[in-house]
Design a protein around this nucleic acid. Structure first.
Lengths: 347, 347
DNA sequence: TGTTCTACGTATAGCGTTCTACATTTTCTG
DNA sequence: CAGAAAATGTAGAACGCTATACGTAGAACA
């Protein structure tokens, strides 16, 4: 039913025009463009001058047919979580002086969208992709990684794979949270995690955090207080779970939320229920996003430095594009950033 | 200095393979692909079956050389503002059943990045672009729009242009804010706007909102209270300006912030200064993003329905790609969503 | 002075599509 | 049933670039 108008826009300056202007062959211009072997300084200068003069820009679409497109894909689950912004900033910094351009795909946390975006990045001949917390099963990830250089962020591999990963030590982060709360006099500490239907559980950051949480609780002799609640990532559902938790016969003294985003919802529910934070309830988030610093939130969180993660991801991806095939797994050490929401109990 | 490895990945199923499998010509397959004229049902079925069987996917990079890439670009200033997420959702809905894919560029609110991203979207032969609040001067926008179908969001055109626009009625929105506050008993109302160095002021939403604010203040007989403060979009600078404003000899009773984002910072500063909201200070934002609803913010805001804006933007862009050349300017009517931060004064 | 390198350029065959021009078959018309 | 018109299919030339294969000149060597 579509009868689309052709999309070609004529009059573009091509490599041919540059060659004609500089009085050299097309091949010579291409060589200059690619910094290839066998170009004299004189020729290079001539060609560069013509490119400048004509305002030439290589057509990525054409390049894609034979070589690289110098385009990297970045696949994120949503446009809500401000943590992604930190990661993105790190990537931008890493790519600053390169000729790579980054384009983003937003999967809406939906597996079909995620796959479609991966496919379409491959169709567009991108040189590589970075993905945050992929939802699709591991064997599909492997298939994609075999077709395009891939770096995964916030995905804990079980063994050596054909992609690289970048993470913070999520177990340790969760342990830090528990230790911090315990030091502040809190004992009944719950963990509010993410409910993802049908995902590859064992590699998820929330799972790692849960393991860390459980271990630290047991180590502190608080095994009997272990309580893990999972909520889908919608405001409604998160608030419903939080409300239920806080209205239980023995509500927790503290809630550790798997990400800041969710912690803010919990703060909201607490206030609506007339609970004071940290008086009646301590709340801790994860990621240390900019919202934590606002006085109305003053949310204790775990800093995993998104900037560093992004930078490393970009670095690893470019290495991989250049030919490295042995997997690398970068792990960052997280730290607690204490704020009012988890202030130590008086007495 | 780069000596990159070639990026080609072999073994891809091409139109040729499909043609061979179906026992027809390459041209025939292409016709089926494009829903072009002159294909019998039998042929179509045969080709479709082969495509399915071989799991064929058209290579966008190759398509870009002759026809469309079915890729749309969406250029946003940053990854922080949750309002963009609403707009994005609207676009996604509009593109749901089409074969268009959307890829995002993030300009970091920087003019050079913005231009570079526009260029690179053109280089990648995207079929069209949507841009939120472009920073570059109007004549450069015109140049780009001449090269690629363009829809601008949150940019108020002065006259007919070679691009479409999608907006809410920002003047009216600002008027609604003032009227709402005045009805609540507030008189000394300040406007906290955005400070952008060297941008095309006259088309910006913040300018429109300022005009609406001034007009409504005058209409309400509050001309002498008019006060406009501008801050760059960083947390530090915003908070500094807010602090200065609130510590002045006669601080405002209410602050209207050009976007929610900024209003949250103001709420933070107010709390740090020991001011109660709305007791000592009313705060109103713009965009009605999800953060407004959190109890700790409970921020009154103007709803301009990002979903609708995004949907319209995508619709207009596709129309334009199909060949429309007369500009269209969609304008949405905003409405107040009152919350606690601007509750009417007692007595 | 030949001969062999090395450095520098060029010609040109693709890459996977689209789309015009044309050939062939089928259907319609009188 | 002839002739025209419509329907269906094919060949093949682009599109802008990359990269291989090759040519040619000058330098180095014997």
């Amino acid at each position: 039913m579509d009868n689309p108008v052709a999309g070609r826009r004529p009059g573009r300056v091509t490599i041919k025009d540059v060659a004609a202007d500089a009085g050299v062959s097309v091949a010579a211009v291409s060589k200059v463009l690619r910094d290839a072997y066998g170009v004299s300084d004189a020729l290079r200068a001539k060609v560069r001058a013509s490119m400048q003069k004509l305002n030439y820009r290589p057509l990525a679409a054409a390049r894609g047919m034979r070589g690289q497109t110098f385009t990297l894909g970045f696949l994120i689950p949503d446009l809500h979580n401000p943590f992604f912004s930190d990661i993105f900033a790190g990537m931008t910094a890493a790519l600053e002086r390169t000729q790579y351009q980054m384009l983003l795909g937003v999967s809406d946390s939906a597996e079909p969208h995620e796959k479609a975006l991966m496919e379409s990045m491959i169709d567009r001949q991108m040189d590589g992709v970075m993905v945050i917390g992929p939802r699709m099963p591991i064997d599909e990830i492997r298939d994609f990684a075999a077709r395009i250089p891939t770096v995964l962020i916030a995905h804990h591999p079980r063994e050596d794979e054909n992609f690289d990963t970048v993470n913070n030590n999520d177990r340790h982060g969760a342990e830090l949270v528990v230790q911090h709360l315990v030091a502040g006099g809190y004992r009944n500490i719950a963990y509010l995690s993410q409910d993802i239907h049908g995902a590859n559980l064992e590699t998820m950051v929330t799972t790692e955090r849960e393991i860390g949480y459980r271990a630290a609780m047991r180590d502190a002799g608080l095994g009997k207080y272990i309580r893990v609640v999972k909520a889908m990532q919608t405001s409604r559902e998160t608030q419903a779970e939080a409300r239920q938790l806080l209205q239980a016969r023995t509500p927790p003294e503290a809630i550790f939320c798997w990400t800041d985003f969710i912690a803010l919802e919990v703060l909201s529910v607490a206030r609506e229920l007339g609970l004071s934070v940290p008086g009646d309830l301590a709340v801790v988030g994860y990621d240390n996003t900019s919202y934590c610093d606002l006085a109305q939130n003053s949310l204790t969180s775990i800093d995993q430095s998104g900037q560093v993660l992004g930078l490393q991801a970009a670095r690893l991806l470019i290495e991989r594009i250049r030919g490295r095939t042995e997997p690398e797994n970068f792990v960052m050490t997280p730290r607690v950033v204490a704020r009012n929401s988890s202030r130590a109990k008086a007495g």
